[in-house]
Design a protein around this nucleic acid. Structure first.
Lengths: 252, 252
DNA sequence: TTTCGTATGATTGTATACGATCATACGACC
DNA sequence: GGTCGTATGATCGTATACAATCATACGAAA
């Protein structure tokens, strides 16, 4: 049984444990340091639009807002920098990474590449049948529920869960960790875009994806994944969305 | 022209600039903070076997050895943690990530997946001809030179350069950054393994790879890349190598 | 003998204080 | 008027000091 050894947030750690299928086991609880809290807060703040892509992030301000000193904030920012969430220039400052349509496209493409690799491996290992699909099915069900309720956020969360589970089934912990690296950035971007229109279509797409996965038809899976790209990418102008958000915020 | 915005070491930044082919341009020089030095030192130390996988890393000791305070060391370790080079448990300690054969295999597989994705995109964009190949050719030449000199380390460096260039030609900065994330771990592992035997074979493989790339034959490229995996993976027992190193170090 | 409570040293997490660097603005000099 | 030197406030980088936590060892009580 592979253990990534990474530190993960408590909620995810639980989900990860559940996914192993070996029943509810004791989870060696990890202390939540202020660094972890800071990381989560920054991502959440970015996804909520409190800080917009390109915005300056001043350590002391952020530290004051979070009620901690600069040190944990700095360490959190360093970690986020290595994930590409923020960009930093020594002695000049840190800012939330600006969003360009090209970057969004690259981000999605990279994510798809990782997932495709994972899927191929999962199918090769026969992890595309039976109880292995439990988590995927649950995610789809959740997605349908949230779509019915009209909760775009809920759909987005379930969507992320689906792809995460898919990636984990590949069994390659490195690939999975890389995927996790990308996840926060996706959260931020899609959070800003409110994941607006499709909803119903998205759900259906995942149903298809799941079916193709169970059938082991890699060509179909790859094609379906690729459609994600084109839809996500050409359907929205993320730069415009950010500009719009900025205008809304700066005027009143 | 895309700018990843990441902080990179000066030497790499220069190479990156050169690779753009737009002539020697002014490089906006980046201050080298102690954090950067610490990162480099840790990776170098690990690759040189000063610290072995699984070894405890005590902040204050490392800080003393590097002649700096704990803060930059901590930040460096945070960054390396997010890259998977070290693992950390709050209040308990940080250690160099233990090496298992499975992990090495996963690492290589993930890297190959990224490179394959990049290659497909590079070929699709027509960046597999003419001056785009300059850097690749240079890397192969360097490899041949180093092989002739019998410098395993030199070959390894050139090898890394080749694959980095290949990945960059894909034009997806996210994919490239992910690849860079994996690079230090590969450096450490292959550094320990001394990259021993093949040498001549490795050089030849890259010549083939380059030819296939120029021909745009994706199937051949993929297959050649996959051979890397199996060779690297099944040819060596990394766990045994580390154990051997440890024994050598602990006894005298 | 086993188990539990407590003390102790080591190590990490966090806060504060200080030094280094940058961007900007202003005024002197040409 | 333009260019350069210099001052100033803001911000980041680093060092030091203190608090929190852990692993271990030791001893008392059952």
């Amino acid at each position: 049984m592979t253990d990534t050894g990474e530190r993960v947030r408590a909620t995810e750690a639980v989900a990860q444990e559940r996914a192993k299928g070996s029943g509810p086991d004791w989870q060696p609880l990890q202390p939540q340091t202020l660094v972890d809290h800071a990381i989560e807060a920054i991502i959440a703040g970015a996804a909520a639009g409190l800080i917009l892509p390109g915005d300056r992030i001043v350590e002391v301000d952020l530290a004051r807002k979070l009620g901690v000193s600069r040190v944990p904030v700095r360490e959190a920012l360093r970690l986020l920098e290595s994930q590409g969430v923020v960009v930093s220039e020594p002695y000049k400052g840190i800012r939330l990474r600006p969003v360009t349509n090209e970057r969004v496209s690259d981000l999605i493409e990279a994510r798809i590449a990782l997932e495709a690799s994972a899927v191929v491996r999962a199918v090769a290992a026969g992890r595309n049948r039976g109880s292995h699909l439990d988590e995927l099915r649950a995610a789809v069900a959740e997605m349908e529920l949230m779509a019915a309720r009209g909760s775009a956020y809920g759909v987005a969360v379930a969507d992320t869960g689906f792809h995460r589970a898919l990636c984990r089934l590949g069994g390659n912990s490195v690939t999975f960790d890389l995927w996790e690296t990308l996840a926060p950035q996706c959260t931020i971007i899609f959070g800003l875009a409110t994941f607006g229109k499709p909803m119903a279509g998205v759900v259906e797409e995942h149903v298809d994806l799941l079916a193709a996965f169970e059938a082991g038809d890699i060509a179909v899976i790859t094609r379906t994944l690729d459609e994600h790209i084109t839809v996500m990418n050409h359907a929205m102008d993320y730069e415009a969305i950010v500009a719009q958000r900025r205008k809304e915020r700066d005027l009143p």
